[in-house]
Amino acid sequence: MAMTAPLLSVIIPALNEAENLPRLLEDLHILRAVGAELILVDGGSHDGSAQQSVTAVDQILTTAPGRARQMNAGASLASGRYLWFLHADTRVPARACQRLLEVLGEQPAWGRFDVQLSGAGPSLRLIGNMISLRSRLTGIASGDQGIFVARSVFAELGGYAELPLMEDLELSRRLKRLARPRCLWPPLVTSSRRWEQHGIWRTVLLMWRLRLAYYCGASPEKLARQYYGGPPS
């Protein structure tokens, strides 16, 4: 008897995220319990990220590092009708899982969540609100916002362009031509470590500058060299 394909495959690219992965996978247990497929794509970690996750996911794949490459590899193995791409330093409230399942029943082409930063303080709260508002106005999503997409749509578009940076914006622009994203709440919680380690407003200015340069035609390879010389991915 043929197995019914799951509604959802969750794809998690990771590189040396042994500290954060267990918390995310615990958050996602509620989805796995109702049949969602969890796929971890490790980019060659040396901190045991993959080994410690064996019992908490359905598939583990090791690839060369590169977030777009890793997500495409995970998508190629996925059997769910929808793909949900989550960064390893994300936390997912139970209500967000429930809301996603509700919305997928309406068969949207794609969507994303609002986001908040994990750290305390009004500046970080403001930045999270600004990211969410900008995304609602523009229809463009960042990877931190947990992009979800029908697997058929993802395949039709050829997946992520394997860029060293801005792969999330590039995919969003192509998806937006098909449909506006569903913008979901409650927000996902993403790590504020890069803002805290390198300075909140310095990091904001760097990201704005890189984003503007990308929209003006700068090569993602050049932007990646600037980005990785600053806050970590």
Rank of each mutant, 00 (worst) to 15 (best):
I60A: 01
L61K: 05
T63R: 05
T63F: 08
A64W: 00
G66D: 10
G66C: 13
R67L: 07
R67E: 13
A68K: 06
R69F: 08
R69Y: 01
M71K: 00
M71I: 04
N72A: 08
N72Y: 13
A73D: 05
A73T: 10
G74W: 09
A75E: 06
L77D: 08
L77C: 08
L77R: 09
A78W: 08
A78C: 08
S79R: 14
S79G: 07
G80K: 10
R81G: 04
Y82V: 03
Y82E: 00
L83I: 01
L83Y: 05
W84G: 00
F85N: 04
L86I: 14
H87F: 12
A88R: 11
A88W: 11
D89F: 14
D89I: 11
T90R: 03
T90W: 04
R91V: 04
V92T: 05
V92M: 03
R95G: 12
R95Q: 15
R95A: 13
A96I: 05
A96L: 02
A96S: 08
A96P: 09
C97Q: 08
R99E: 05
R99D: 03
R99Y: 00
R99N: 11
L100C: 15
E102R: 12
V103E: 10
L104F: 12
G105Q: 09
G105I: 12
G105W: 12
E106H: 10
E106A: 14
E106Q: 15
Q107A: 14
Q107F: 15
Q107N: 15
Q107C: 13
A109V: 04
R112K: 14
R112H: 10
F113K: 02
D114V: 00
V115Y: 13
L117N: 01
S118G: 06
G119D: 03
G119C: 06
A120V: 06
A120T: 12
G121L: 07
G121S: 06
P122K: 06
P122V: 12
S123R: 13
L124G: 03
L124E: 00
L126Y: 04
L126T: 01
L126K: 07
I127A: 01
